[in-house]
Amino acid sequence: VTGGSSAVPGQWPWQVSIVYDGTHVCGGSLVSKKWVLSAAHCFPREHHKDMYEVRLGAHQLDSFVPKAEARSVAQVLVHISYQQEGSQGDIALLQLSNPVTFSRYIRPICLPAANASFPNGLQCTVTGWGHVAPSVSLQAPRPLQQLEVPLISRETCNCLYNIDAKPSEPHSIQQDMVCAGYVKGGKDACQGDSGGPLSCPVGGLWYLAGIVSWGDACGAPNRPGVYTLTSSYASWIHYHVAELEPRVVPQTQESQPDIHLCRSHLALSSAPARGLLG
């Protein structure tokens, strides 16, 4: 996480660390005693599930404390539609080898139902042990980092990603994605946060609105973080884990248009007479 701060132990008790061959590679979110949600791109086909371990209840990655638990992975379910970075379906379900015991430091986050809608501008929080800047690792003892990020609509996010877009690197924000972050940059998720939670508060509960998926560098201007929209996969999750009940998210706040955040939109609309091309 770039531009964030250290969390307090137990503040995000659903955050897990996914370790491959002894090294932290991704984040994840605990959604029940035996299941964790993460990103599909954290589980390349050639990696065997026995090489993964899930650490729960951790705060500093470099200091293992009694309240933290570790589990091996019994099953990895990667969504069939995931192909490569930026494609749809960047979501994975992990079954733990044994259930965990909930505690002050290990608790599940709520899964939003399929029809859930979180308003533009809602202040959510992204957490993780990832880089603090492109290719700059979090320093030992690596405390969990947190960052409040406002949600940005898909339309506005597409508009932002078209500013100074490189033809060789087309980016499009798909139906199953949501953006969050800052137009001016400097505060964002980064490598190593992938798979971790975008936690959004509604009605006194935290919901897993998104899963850290991709972005252009970290904290670059006009390049907010892009997250897999968890509610798009409520039925896929329920199909594989029948006991997991997605929750209806109460509609508390109207979603306000946020297209004004995208400078290039203003340029286009302010000069139609000169026939500016899109």
């Binding site: 959604v31 002050r104 608790r107 709520c110």
Partner: peptide, 14 residues
């Protein structure tokens, strides 16, 4: 359901 009923709550206030 008991487990899920406890979802989304962090005991440590900010």
């Amino acid at each position: 359901a008991e487990a899920e009923a406890l979802c989304g709550v962090a005991s440590q206030a900010r």
